[in-house]
């Protein structure tokens, strides 16, 4: 277990040393994950709300597809994005392969189904509770959706955190479409994979500890905010 104590020491010194390469990797990881999360929220939340409120023929099929997509293997997503963005692919002219944008697209494909499917369930529960009241008050669909999102904000925050967790911890897709290029597309997870493959286990584990600390810090912050709001508003 020497390796674990060495890793904690390495991680500690890496952080306090202010190593610019490390911080570049950390900031790129966070930037790519947060951007893909934001894009997924913008797309996934309205899709989830639409599926929660409206009843139509293919609704249950669409929900089943979304649920299935939540468990889609990242390497498959990476491969699909790769095929689209490669020079011979339909979107090859955009020259996005091996760029942070390609990584964001791949992560969005992974996170959007999570946001859409889980928010659909949460909003549907609220819709069932509020439906008669809102019809009685002549609340328009758009105002109802805004009300659902406001009133379900704490549950939706948990969904967003689940999406963030999926994005920041993902390695398969980003390594395929990003290529793990130093100073360009190297993020925490791909750096860990690289150091592991080089046999530099202590450094890999140190990077893993830093990644876990970041994820834990963001979750603790969100949990604190959630508890504060629940205490104030009982939502």
């Amino acid at each position: 277990m020497q390796i674990f104590s060495d890793s904690f020491t390495t991680a500690f010194f890496l952080i306090i040393s202010g190593d610019p390469d490390l911080y570049e990797i950390i900031f790129l990881s966070i930037k790519v994950s947060l951007t893909s999360l934001l894009g997924s929220i913008i797309i996934g939340l309205p899709v989830g709300a639409f599926l929660a409120i409206h009843r139509f023929k293919m609704r249950s099929v669409l929900l089943s597809v979304l649920n299935a997509l939540m468990g889609m293997p990242p390497v498959v997503v990476g491969l699909i994005v790769y095929l689209y963005l490669s020079r011979s692919g339909p979107l090859g002219f955009l020259n996005l392969l091996y760029s942070p944008t390609a990584m964001i697209i791949a992560q969005m494909l992974l996170v959007t189904p999570i946001i859409a499917a889980l928010s659909a369930q949460i909003i549907e529960d609220l819709h069932i509770e509020y439906k008669d009241l809102f019809r009685s008050l002549n609340v328009s669909t758009s105002k109802a959706v805004v009300a659902y999102i406001i009133d379900a904000r704490m549950s939706l925050l948990t969904v967003v955190l689940a999406g963030f967790g999926r994005a920041i911890s993902e390695v398969g897709a980003v390594s395929i479409v990003g290529g793990n290029i130093d100073h360009l597309t190297r993020v925490m997870t791909t750096a860990i994979a690289l150091e592991t493959s080089k046999g530099n286990l202590s450094l890999a584990l140190a990077l893993g500890i830093i990644l876990l600390t970041i994820a834990l810090g963001i979750n603790l912050l969100a949990a604190h905010a959630k508890n504060w709001v629940m205490e104030k508003q009982d939502v």
Partner: peptide, 26 residues
């Protein structure tokens, strides 16, 4: 011109005053 009060009171997940404000804003 109508309003209905239901048997099971549905409360919006907001403060007491904001429950009224929601309708006032409509």
């Amino acid at each position: 011109k109508q309003a209905m009060v239901f048997q099971n009171a549905v409360m919006l997940r907001r403060s007491v005053k904001d429950n009224l404000a929601f309708v006032a804003n409509l």
